[in-house]
Design a protein around this nucleic acid. Structure first.
Lengths: 149, 149
DNA sequence: CTGCAATAGGTGTATATACTCCCATTGCAG
DNA sequence: CTGCAATGGGAGTATATACACCTATTGCAG
């Protein structure tokens, strides 16, 4: 009875939101990583540096919330940045918390990476068209709020 | 000179396509994984089963191309599915190639997972609205073509 | 036929992601 | 003050992702 899926069902699955957003995500990520490569930063790492710079000092959980990322994922993603001494993670006032900050070196790396990020961003915006891009970002912002519904 | 980024620059970075699509990707993936959890399949694994079912038998490289995924990533993603005996990977005619197919068990798992995938898909489509969703998928399809430009 | 470039694929390594379970600290009910 | 739930965070485990480098097979120029 539960034999093979019909052609129609398989076609339906091609519109899977999860599949399509992950697929596009891989393609877009590749653009940024290519440009950022010479800085030694990955796309995600650039994002982390930006988010920390904009909010420092910030606790792990608060940062994870802003990133719509699991707390434990963030802990792991910070590891390489700590190793490269781009971020400092120290004990907070509430001794349960840890305060994340950019080091001087982290600010420097971020500043150096910015023009390369701009190139990647420009490439994607040019490719999509400015209006289309704005609309896409709107939809992505909507989607990220689906968590917890 | 390369000191801290200005408030304006940090604000600009908030529109990073890479950051935003990955963030939304995490949120959307969570919806599908929650629904698929009882099947023992991850979102990506469901996608893989669908793609294989629609194209079997198919070589690693051809499948990777359809998925806009690195060839070696696909090899690794197939590993857990092989272990669960949901897919068979055998030597192709051209002995350099490997032919990927669903096992009987794989077809069964896929058929059982389909209604749960439909629930997840419906949740996302309801959340976004049907027209918005169609438009989003269009944009994602455009984006995935940025690779290699 | 031989040598070699092209093709198909895997391994080592590193990061990204999140779940489950665990520990430390805090704050509050009693 | 004490006991305990709530909060903040890490470790173990498993999957997802891709780059650099390696091996095996094929096919073709000569």
């Amino acid at each position: 009875m539960p034999s093979k899926l019909s052609r129609k069902e398989l076609t339906q699955c091609a519109d899977c939101a999860c599949f399509n957003i992950r697929k596009a995500s891989r393609a877009v990520t590749a653009v940024y990583e290519e440009r950022l490569h010479e800085t030694g930063l990955r796309g995600t790492q650039f994002t982390l540096l930006v988010m920390i710079a904009a909010n420092e000092p910030i606790t792990i959980s608060h940062l994870a919330e802003k990133l719509v990322m699991d707390r434990t994922t963030l802990t792991r993603n910070l590891r390489p940045l700590e190793k490269q001494e781009l971020v400092d993670v120290v004990q907070g006032e509430d001794r349960r918390t840890r305060a994340v900050r950019l080091s001087k070196s982290g600010h420097k790396s971020l500043a150096e990476a910015l023009p390369l990020w701009k190139k990647a961003q420009k490439k994607v915006v040019s490719f999509m068209g400015e209006e289309q891009m704005t609309d896409l970002l709107d939809k992505l912002h909507t989607l990220e709020k689906i968590t917890g519904i």
